[in-house]
Simulated assay, not measured.
Amino acid sequence: MSPSPVARAEIVVDLAVIRHNVATLRRAVDPEGAGTVRMMTVVKADGYGHGMVESAAAAREAGAEWLGVATVDEAMALRAAGDTGRVLCWLAVPGEGYADPVAADVDVTAATLPVLGEIAEAAHHLQRTARVQLKIDTGLSRGGATAADWPDLVAEAARLEERGLVRVTGIWSHFACSDEPDHPANDAQEEAFRHALDVAAAAGLRPEVRHLANSAGALLRPSSRFDLVRCGLASYGLDPAPGHTADLGLVPAMTVRATLALVKPIAAGAGVSYGHTWIAPQPTTVGLVPAGYGDGVPRHASNTAETWVGGKRRPVRGRICMDQFVVDLEGDQAEAGDEVVLFGIGRDGEPTAQDWAEACGTISYEIVTRIGGRFVRRHVQPDRGAEDPE
């Protein structure tokens, strides 16, 4: 597949692959097909860089009963795009307002009494019942109620349920170390979560779903699946716990590529890019890639990452610039206009997002989520044709 003729650099997202991944994950977490473990596909941060609305639609088609987002704005964007299924959002600041998500039947998260009060106030004003999920901090020390505050939170939620202002649809938490399956925090967090569920049950709460597992937890810790799992990164075909997860047949959905803007020879001793952090040890040819850190190409990839040109891996030479970077073609024949793949599926040997993550000392989540800027994003569905580029 050649790059779009109008795109000097593009992100191509295969929605059929996302459908495949979500369906594969559903089978993995519910191997008997009993329907006891439901699937939430997390589409926050613009679908981890893959396009939130398009990824959400693909996940729904593959059977995802829930979608997960961070912010109210993201939830409302899904509703505006026509999604009518269950959506959970979990990140808001005091005073942000809950009228819109309550009116749109979005499940919202409360971890403190003030937030629960704001949700109930919105429900009272709208004269409807808000769907609320309560979050307990089991050891991540990020969002969620503390163990000390949890009894008061669930007691108040039960009182609000009796008044008809809220319906507690879920209780949940989040792992800190699920990508390290032997880390003792995993046992401790699951134990703390089960205790929190007992406290909530004693208060009279009967949630629809209880959920703790993210992608890594869902795949590596069956005991943590409860009623629902939240799969984000794995839905896009990337490994949430490199070195630990079995090969389920997940496929990366994103390919990032560009058109070489220029190819030229350089002499031995020539310095490349700002600071001359790479000096050519011998005569070579270099290619100019028209994308840089202004487009989310990590500057940490300077002199460490590889690309794919002409059927071979080609190293990045010198510093990544704001708009462009240089790759070493090592004297091979290439021309301006040839395709360069930054990362993709990896099936033919091209670098993957995980390769770039390792080159940059980060995680693949960051690689795919930050890429963007002036890249044109295009969604394709091999069985249905391509959608319009963004």
Results as ranks from 00 to 15, higher is better:
11 I>M: 15
12 V>M: 02
12 V>K: 00
13 V>C: 02
14 D>S: 07
14 D>L: 02
14 D>G: 02
14 D>A: 07
15 L>G: 00
16 A>P: 00
17 V>F: 00
17 V>K: 00
17 V>W: 00
18 I>T: 15
18 I>N: 07
18 I>A: 06
18 I>Y: 09
19 R>S: 14
19 R>C: 05
20 H>E: 11
20 H>F: 03
21 N>A: 03
21 N>M: 09
21 N>Y: 10
23 A>D: 12
23 A>Q: 12
23 A>P: 08
23 A>T: 10
25 L>P: 00
25 L>Q: 01
26 R>P: 02
28 A>R: 13
28 A>V: 04
28 A>N: 04
28 A>H: 04
29 V>E: 03
30 D>S: 08
30 D>A: 05
31 P>I: 02
31 P>E: 05
31 P>H: 06
31 P>K: 02
32 E>K: 12
33 G>C: 09
33 G>H: 11
34 A>T: 15
34 A>Y: 06
34 A>C: 11
34 A>Q: 13
35 G>R: 11
35 G>Y: 11
36 T>E: 15
36 T>P: 00
37 V>D: 06
37 V>R: 05
37 V>S: 03
37 V>K: 09
38 R>K: 15
38 R>F: 05
38 R>N: 08
38 R>M: 11
39 M>G: 02
39 M>Y: 12
39 M>P: 02
39 M>L: 15
39 M>K: 04
41 T>S: 14
41 T>C: 14
41 T>H: 13
41 T>D: 05
42 V>A: 12
42 V>M: 08
42 V>I: 14
44 K>Y: 01
45 A>S: 14
46 D>H: 12
46 D>G: 06
46 D>E: 14
46 D>T: 07
46 D>F: 06
47 G>K: 04
47 G>E: 07
47 G>Q: 09
48 Y>W: 00
48 Y>G: 11
48 Y>L: 04
49 G>I: 02
49 G>V: 03
49 G>S: 06
50 H>K: 01
51 G>I: 08
51 G>F: 10
51 G>S: 08
51 G>H: 07
51 G>Y: 10
52 M>G: 13
52 M>F: 08
